[in-house]
Design a protein around this nucleic acid. Structure first.
Lengths: 107, 107
DNA sequence: TTGACATGAAACCATTTGGTTGTATATAAT
DNA sequence: ATTATATACAACCAAATGGTTTCATGTCAA
């Protein structure tokens, strides 16, 4: 269904609450699909698809270990997200700062 | 179609590139629907729906001005997003730091 | 080698999403 | 008063999304 590299970006990937919970679970340690699935009520297959989307966004990586597949968190896309956010940080609570430069004289 | 308050959260709202561009346009100044629409090839109606989603996520506010409706950026939900992100910041480039506490002895 | 376990993959489905067109209403300008 | 402008709202549509079930495959253990 969905594993073409780069088909999903970080914005889409974190839009779903299930996927955010997956990231949270993987923050501490590598986990197998079965272990991850045990934290949800949905089917293992559904969880696998979410992992595929996270992987296509670069937010997780995986490696086979015997018959298990272990997933781990990858933070690089989150760093891009942080950069995106930083652009908007200038717009909070520094209205005072803005007044210094932006001499409100338009219209 | 989509304006019930809180129907959308910030994660869903920023998942769409059109909506991210709308936020960017609104960062500098209030703009009318018509002006905003002029930056896209899609119909004005489509843009209006995107604005509705942004508004339901609290990312924009609006006010009527004559026959125009002016939208403005609201940054509070972005601050929540930043908080969410901060949890993951401990996982980048501070592998050294982690070694101090996490005495890698599990198997 | 037989069975249990962990995953992969295909087919299917309902709902949501992102878009369209058409019509109606309110305000501004001539 | 009439016309043009700015928006609102409803109906409709194709494609994507988030889920399911079923079946196949690879690996570990007895």
């Amino acid at each position: 269904m969905a594993e073409d590299p780069q088909k999903y970006d970080v914005f889409q990937a974190i839009a779903d609450p299930t996927r955010r919970k997956l990231l949270e679970l993987l923050a501490k340690e590598q986990l197998s699909i079965a272990t991850l699935s045990s934290h949800f009520t949905m089917s293992r297959t559904a969880v696998t698809k979410h992992l595929g989307i996270l992987e296509s966004a670069g937010l997780v990586g995986s490696q086979k270990a015997g018959r298990e597949k272990l997933y781990r968190l990858e933070v690089k896309p989150l760093q891009s997200l942080k950069q995106w956010l930083e652009f908007y940080e200038q717009y909070w609570d520094d209205k005072l700062e803005k007044l210094k430069f932006n001499v409100e004289e338009d219209e």
